[in-house]
Design a protein around this nucleic acid. Sequence first.
DNA 1: CTCAAAACATAACAATTGTCATATTTTAAT
DNA 2: ATTAAAATATGACAATTGTTATGTTTTGAG
Lengths: 151, 151
Amino acid sequence: MLSNACQYAIRSILYLSIHSNETKKIGVKVIADELETPQPFLAKLLQQLAKKKLVSSIKGPHGGFYLTKKNNENSLWDIVTCIDGTDKFDNCFLGLATCDDKNPCPVHFIVVPFKQKLLNDFRDKTIAQFTKEITLSGRVISLKDFNALKD
Amino acid sequence: MLSNACQYAIRSILYLSIHSNETKKIGVKVIADELETPQPFLAKLLQQLAKKKLVSSIKGPHGGFYLTKKNNENSLWDIVTCIDGTDKFDNCFLGLATCDDKNPCPVHFIVVPFKQKLLNDFRDKTIAQFTKEITLSGRVISLKDFNALKD
DNA sequence: CTCAAAACATAACAATTGTCATATTTTAAT
DNA sequence: ATTAAAATATGACAATTGTTATGTTTTGAG
Ligand code: FES
Ligand code: FES
């Protein structure tokens, strides 16, 4: 459903939301290592996100990526839009030209409610809300399970 | 979520379920034309499906593809398994190594119920049940909206 | 002012997926 | 038997996506 690229992007933003702020920037190397994602690929993605103001960054020594208060008010949906675009979510599950309740394909009424709910959650909840839940409930972002939450 | 290939496959099987039987076979050309899918690609897919006994076929003049009573008892899930494999449904939505309630990623509890429901519908309903609903409710398979249901 | 650490930019490369073309085999009709 | 219509098999080609490599620019530290 989501591309690899988008999955990496979401995880890295959530990571930054937990571990960074205006005074604590984090370099690509660290992020890639923590999330176990390919480093140069992630760098490219972070640059895309930076261009759309979904993450902040400064160059130079002790520079890096970080999330401002404002960055934290974006939604997961903004990330998906930035990296993957929204086609997969708008289009018919079976690839028909239009997807609406008037001309439903055989799986339309199975698929649409789910997509709707997913969309709402992704659009309505801010990154900040997500990270709050994450830190409270001990959910996972990295592949090396709980390490990311220990510090 | 589903690949192009899988979407074509599902639609063609549903089409065959409605329009074919042991005594009425349909050629690739007709199917591809009705569903507006690339013809050679669809041929390849139908051959994959035939190998796994999800569709029946005979060669020669007046040959073609068709669904037997038994073919009609398969599920949409069987098609997905045959064409795409099940990885996309089993794996974590954010690409983490494991996906279970014990080590949930931040979106786990949003995504899993939906996937579960979708999976159930795809696994439990037979092709025959789907086509019954389709013919009763006038749903769409082809891109040229209701034409496929007019005869 | 110089240097090095970082983001930024570009482009080369690889893998997967989707598409098309060609040739072979089977089978019914004549 | 011959022929033509179909599925089948194989492989070439294109497009997308994912990955890696190389070089440029910015900027803080000494
Ligand atoms: S018409 Fe197919 S999912 Fe809506
Ligand atoms: S752990 Fe990510 S979807 Fe289940």
